[in-house]
Design a protein around this nucleic acid. Structure first.
Lengths: 220, 220
DNA sequence: GTCTATAGTCGGATAGAC
DNA sequence: GTCTATCCGACTATAGAC
């Protein structure tokens, strides 16, 4: 087993420190000095391992993709098989979709690391760089395809139709907002932080809306 | 009348240039040199008028609040009166809510300036400063209150209940996502940009989801 | 592979002329 | 109120010792 959290090699420590610093302060706002300091490594190690600050930034994108794939991958894979199976009942699709939503909230809103991933990814949405290609092709794109296959039949829409794609983005936005508008939500609810109980409330609110959307497409 | 777009005083030109530069590059990424250059003003004017870079940043928050209030204010005010009127029918509430959604998408997704507002505001959500107080108290907070009064009766929920507040944030997230995940949406739809026709599609998708959510609370 | 030292650039703020 | 000149600190990257 790993002896302690310290002695990962300098390369990996730099990636993790960079995720934190880039996430919190942006590309320009995060200095290589601060990253190296956080990682307990030398500043010169950044040009040495990554070719420069740019290369480190791109390596962070790969790290994020690894982390999210590791957490959401199995559930998405199961959902994909179920969505492709013609014998799957609408009830199964419904439950799978709700489970995906719960899992997504748990990962995105319920963990501290996800705050850093989210900030990094939102920044890339507003101003895409090469890092966006990594994140879209490895994380976002595949997820949307699975959800489309799962939800299309429930809403009576073709998986490749624009209207379904847009409605799915809206549905995903219902979960994203709890990370992206966290400060406003905490203030409005007069909460100081998300707790496990409050995450349950969030999942319940999301479920209520998603159920309404799915059931509106149900034959009367 | 105003002679031309040029001769607004240096103070205002600086605020508008700062909105653009802070929006695009973040607080640290936007240099006072670049802001002053964009504004056609002197660098020394920033400490002179705003006390420093920090003061300029806060002034930008006030400017954003002014702009959004100017555009959404009238519609919100009408919605507020209607929501408070006991004689208002569910059908009126429904239509008002859909109109608010359309207007919100038009402002947030359909205008170029809103890209800058959104970036500024999202940054503040992740890492709130004094600027967040300005934006929440003048823009976000009042909007959420109106929506709660409008939607609560339709969903059979108390306007002050946590579940309603959370479900409303989720609904708002359905519109926000088209700005905050713009790059992913454009890629998934194989669009190069939002056009008026595509905005219609977005509004239609949003309406479909919102109608489903509102009608699920309808007495059978 | 990791360090120190340093080069070269750019940042924000200030002083003081006009 | 607006300018030029300048200070001083922080930045990234490189060279070269070990």
């Amino acid at each position: 087993m790993q002896v302690a959290m310290e002695k990962a090699d300098a390369r990996q420590r730099l990636v993790e420190a960079a995720l934190k610093m880039f996430g919190e302060h942006g590309f320009k706002g995060a200095s290589t000095r601060a990253i190296a300091g956080e990682a307990g490594a030398n500043i010169a190690a950044i040009p040495y391992y990554f070719g420069g600050k740019d290369g480190l930034y791109l390596a962070v994108a790969g790290h994020i993709a690894d982390q999210i794939t590791g957490r959401m991958g199995p559930a998405l894979q199961m959902a994909r098989q179920l969505a492709d199976d013609p014998a799957t009942t609408p009830e199964q699709r419904r439950n799978t979709m709700l489970a995906l939503g719960d899992g997504f909230v748990s990962m995105l809103v319920g963990t501290e690391e996800a705050a850093l991933w989210a900030r990094f990814m939102v920044r890339e949405q507003f101003d895409p760089t090469e890092a966006f290609d990594v994140l879209y092709s490895r994380v976002m794109g595949p997820s949307y395809v699975v959800i489309a296959k799962l939800l299309g039949p429930l809403l009576g829409l073709e998986p490749d139709s624009d209207i379904l794609k847009l409605r799915i983005f809206a549905v995903v936005g219902q979960a994203l907002v709890f990370r992206v508008a966290r400060a406003a939500i905490l203030r409005r609810l007069e909460w100081d932080a998300y707790t496990p109980e409050r995450l349950d409330q969030i999942r319940a609110a999301l479920r209520a809306n998603i159920i309404a959307i799915m059931d509106a497409g149900r034959p009367a």
